[in-house]
Nucleic acid binder design. Sequence first.
DNA 1: AATCAACACAACCGCCACCAC
DNA 2: GGTGGTGGCGGTTGTGTTGAT
Length: 285
Amino acid sequence: MGRPPCCDKISVKKGPWTPEEDIILVSYIQQNGPGNWRAIPTSTGLLRCSKSCRLRWTNYLRPGIKRGSFTEHEEKMIIHLQALLGNRWAAIASYLPERTDNDIKNYWNTHLKKKLAKLGGHEHGITSSRHQSITKGQWERRLQTNIHQAKQALSDALSLDKSDNTNSSKKSSETIPVVQNSATYASSTENIARLLENWTKKSPNSSSQSTTTTTYSTSFNNSISSPSDGAISTTPEAILDNQMPLSLLEKWLLDDAVVQGQDGDFMDMGLMGETTADFRTILQF
DNA sequence: AATCAACACAACCGCCACCAC
DNA sequence: GGTGGTGGCGGTTGTGTTGAT
């Protein structure tokens, strides 16, 4: 038998969230912090499943979420992180702190998959439709067999990025379709999210936010905002804790010397499910 | 102006991992 | 070790919007 539903489905409301519901949810989280989602429906009177509350928060109301079109750089990062990690959207999202896993997943499914298919079964050989049926165990094996291709893909992307940097903003406006600002409602939720901006800085509970994306977002932004204070760590722990900006991770992946003679550095660490051996394989290629 | 297809994205569903008991 | 509860994740669906005819 399957496990019982997370909440009483009879009294649960479904469908789009109203601004009023958003305000109730945000108010609760302002006071109590994110987490303990099960308590939210009973505490707030919201006729929503706890899962629905969590999703609404993490995908829409959480501060720091960037909406609108993806930049060319973001697009390339998604393509090549997907090549490295597979359809592990939460892991990919941890390197794009302003984007949610849902956003990235949607963008992949609606834009990038078609785009790559149009390019003719793209050479990277790791992404695309055949990837969808691959199980987690298969992913681990495939990661090892395709690591050469993956690294080459990332290397190519980086060289492209660097050559494109000078005119990337112009090109992105030409190549990336502008996402229409479809919802007047969106602006109201943006206002709600804006209300939370200060709260994230002062709330004692903000440090206990449960999503990896949020955790990374904080450290990522700190690193970006103070690049000269030496706060950026390039230790394996920093990578595994998602505290390393992608640019440094890229350097790690591409700089063979970094991992030479560091056996033991990765013991007893896990990166979102990868085994220590998997991660060592990536770095030692 | 009306209709329809394509698109974009928010939300739901089911499965799984982890944890407490 | 077994069981149940909870949160998290990825796949999929539903719905509103836009563009073409």
